[in-house]
């Protein structure tokens, strides 16, 4: 799959294009936050508490007079870096484990995947709360949670692909010419797992956004005064009657980003299915 076909896939259909634009807007916010945000996200202003949206504050202010737009812009950094970083780590780890352990098979495969089944049996949020309760709320903690929750899922998806590839003739041919394990895993198997992996990664990313926001909302994620979206929802909840916008703004941001990523993932999926038709 080359760059052109990927670009075409992203912009061919309006839904995918919309998703891509949304995701890129948030990415832009995260990267160029200080240039876009009109105020500091943490500066409090007692004179301007709970201001409805206005020209000076397009998305209004919260109960401490902080500018909500600035907080959303800076918050994009946290949520994208945590969810993105966690997803990347989980995908890498899940792929490494999934490809190698499944190919080797035997009792090791049995052990690893039964363990993963055990992890998957616990609800993600419960697992997150347990872990963060143990290590204390922190960014690293959140990252760890994402890796722990999503690695088994990625590994399972990879496993299903590898299982179908393992008995194929070309893998046996590689064994018959004494290829090293590394060659079989990374040159023969990985390219065939990659398309499925791309779709899975996009999907995991959108779930990871949710997870980070949920942890923030439960107060075990990123701590105040950081402009975390989930945390903002939590703080605004009590103010709903006085300043409903302060709840709507972060909630909408979360929803928009998740929808955007999902639309994009759907586009990737369709593009890859087209590519895979020849396989």
């Amino acid at each position: 799959m080359n760059f052109q076909s990927l670009r075409r896939a992203f912009f061919a259909d309006p839904a995918t294009a919309t998703g891509t634009i949304i995701v890129f807007c948030f990415l832009g916010m995260a990267l160029f936050g200080p240039l876009i945000a009109p105020y500091s996200p943490t500066t409090q202003n007692a004179d301007l508490i709970r201001q409805p949206p206005s020209f000076a504050h397009p998305l209004g202010t919260d109960r401490l007079g902080r500018d909500l737009l600035s907080r959303i812009v800076y918050g994009a950094r946290d949520i994208l870096s945590l969810a993105g970083g966690g997803t990347v780590l989980a995908v890498i780890l899940g792929t490494l484990i999934g490809v190698s352990v499944t190919y080797l098979g035997g009792w090791l495969e049995e052990l690893v995947f039964r363990l993963f089944d055990g992890l998957l049996a616990l609800p993600a949020l419960l697992l997150a709360l347990l872990l963060l309760g143990a290590v204390g709320p922190s960014r690293t903690g959140v990252l760890l949670v994402i890796v722990l929750v999503y690695t088994p899922i990625v590994a399972r998806v990879v496993r299903s692909v590898v299982l179908s590839l393992k008995p194929r003739g070309f893998i046996e041919a590689a064994r018959m010419r004494g290829e090293r394990l590394g060659y079989i895993l990374w040159r023969e198997l990985l390219p065939l797992v990659a398309p499925t992996l791309a779709v899975e990664a996009a999907l995991r990313f959108s779930y990871a956004i949710f997870l980070v926001a949920s942890l923030g909302f439960l107060g075990v994620g990123v701590q105040p005064p950081s402009p975390d979206w989930g945390l903002m929802v939590l703080e605004a909840r009590n103010e709903f009657a006085l300043a409903p916008w302060s709840l709507y703004v972060p909630a909408t941001a979360i929803a928009l980003l998740v929808v955007g990523i999902n639309l994009m993932a759907e586009g990737v999926r369709r593009a890859i299915r087209g590519e895979m038709a020849g396989y």
């Binding site: 003739g169 046996e172 018959m176 010419r177 004494g178 390219p191 065939l192």
Partner: peptide
């Protein structure tokens, strides 16, 4: 000294690798 051709030609080649690459490997390895 011993090689084998399997029954199903549809599965004999890795779809991700070119024909050239498939032919180079045994020359290098064996």
């Amino acid at each position: 000294r011993l090689q084998m051709v399997l029954q199903n030609p549809q599965e004999a080649l890795n779809p991700a690798l070119t024909v050239g690459e498939a032919l180079i490997r045994p020359l290098i390895r064996l």
